[in-house]
Amino acid sequence: MEPITFASALANLSSMAPEIWQACRETALMLGIGLFTAILLGGPLGIILYLSQPGQLFANRVVNGVLGWLVNLVRSFPFIILMVSLVPLTRVLVGSTIGPIAAAVPLSFAAIPYFARLVEQTLREIPRGVVEAAEAMGASPLQIIVKVLLNEARSGLISSLTILTISFLSYSAVAGVVGGGGIGDLAIRYGYYRFQTDVMVAMVLLLVVIVQIIQFAGNRLAAHLDKR
């Protein structure tokens, strides 16, 4: 094998530009679907987990216990095993088990309880007295959730979403191995299986840059929204 020089790596990578671009789009698609589902289903689940705790608005030991147990159950699966066990469900939902959309199914499945716990913990930081003040004013449960809980926790929720995004960028690489595609998959296929170290290094660097950007943007937005 030829030794890798900077020039040869550059030439090799530029010849792969369309594939790299394709991989970026696949990663974005997997993450996008996963995060969307997490917010849509995991967000409300987190709110229910919080509100059903003892001492909260809808304290309910049974609901809180059952939901908490389910969340822990899904979260205890190693992601790769969860992915394989969800193959039949993926086939039913997507009609295929390969490609970024198919990979988004187990990603979403794992992201829901993960985000639910993050939301629950973020909401816990709101002082009980603030919710009580809203109750005393005659606020309805929905008004309390939207105008008090979500608004007071908005900065923490953005931070939670940042953590979720970065974790699932990493998970999406695992999903890539079973045919999901994406940046991580490209790194493994070319860099690891075909010994093209330059591709692997470049893809890891690309991921490093993406993570830094997501974290930076998340921090900035969270700080901007935080008036406490």
């Binding site: 002082p127 007295g129 603030v130 003040a133 608004n151 007071e152 908005r154 900065s155 929204l225 008036k227």
Partner: peptide, 10 residues
């Protein structure tokens, strides 16, 4: 309230 209980983000 003693602790005011204002909404910090408003």
């Amino acid at each position: 309230f003693q602790q005011f209980n204002l909404l910090a983000n408003r």
